[in-house]
Write a protein that binds this DNA or RNA. Structure first.
Length: 261
DNA sequence: ATGGCCTGATCTTCAGGA
């Protein structure tokens, strides 16, 4: 079967409901990982996505963070986080959700931002990523197609930001962060590189400020890592840049991966 | 015009985002 899997940081599913529902209807993904819901489980527009045929697993606690997995090919064995998931300021934040959706198992992640190098949130980001690596060790080796996908808040290479000279001493591009991505690859996951539909680089995020989108001052921080079974089934992958356009857009564009499984 | 954003809550100002 052909399966379309996507990840998208929606920057508030409440503010974005119309755009999310519209995109589901036009892109017709089978499985979607959403990040930054910025609402509670009760606040998620479950009925509106159900009307399009999607089951929804959510983990949202309020104003910050929040992740969901939508599926129209089945939704089973849902797990919130994993044992050993670090807390920040004593709070277990809703940043990871895993589910089996038909033939694939997916882990949806919203990796901590880090704020500034040296900030406690940066240390939290690195610890969180270490915890992720441990959590994916087993599914990475499994025969079931598995992917971890979401907003990693890391640009894998210098080419994944519009101007690396502006990122000296910044989060998102540091060696310790990138080492965590390499660690995922060391556990048998490979990065699925999306095509850009315009310009040369498949950026996934453009700041709302300073005309970043029209200038294409973007970053590629929404990433997909698949195990061998998942990567071997990929037929196409691209960034749906069109969704970043217009009034009421998220500051992130969806990353879409097509599989033949 | 040489700076230009968006969200939700603590709500007319702020933190956080990246």
């Amino acid at each position: 079967m052909v399966l379309r899997v996507a990840t998208w940081n929606v920057n508030s599913v409440t503010a974005r409901t119309e755009r999310v529902v519209g995109w589901l209807g036009s892109a017709k993904p089978d499985v979607v990982c959403l990040q930054e819901l910025k609402t509670t489980d009760e606040g998620f527009p479950t009925d509106q996505v159900a009307a399009l045929g999607y089951e929804a697993a959510t983990w949202g606690t309020g104003r910050w963070n929040g992740v969901a997995i939508l599926s129209r090919v089945g939704l089973a064995e849902v797990r919130r986080g994993w044992p050993g998931l670090p807390e920040f300021d004593g709070v277990l934040e809703p940043r990871a959700l895993t589910a089996t959706c038909g033939p694939v198992r997916v882990t949806c992640v919203y990796v901590p931002n880090g704020r500034e190098v040296g900030h406690p949130h940066y240390d939290y980001k690195l610890s969180w990523l270490d915890s992720l690596s441990r959590a994916v060790t087993e599914p990475a080796r499994a025969e079931v197609p598995f992917a971890v996908l979401g907003d990693f808040n890391i640009a894998p290479t210098d080419a994944d930001v519009w101007d690396i000279s502006l990122f000296a001493d910044s989060t998102h591009v540091t060696a310790p962060e990138r080492a965590r991505l390499a660690d995922l690859e060391g556990r048998g996951l490979v990065e699925i590189h999306p095509r850009a539909l315009k310009y040369d680089k498949p950026f996934t995020y453009w700041d709302y400020r300073q005309l970043a989108f029209p200038k294409n001052n973007g970053m590629r921080i929404d990433l997909v890592f698949g195990n061998e079974a998942f990567a071997g089934a990929v037929s196409d992958a691209f960034v749906d840049r069109e969704e970043r356009k217009g009034k009421g857009a998220s500051d992130h564009a969806p990353v879409v991966v097509d599989l033949t499984v």
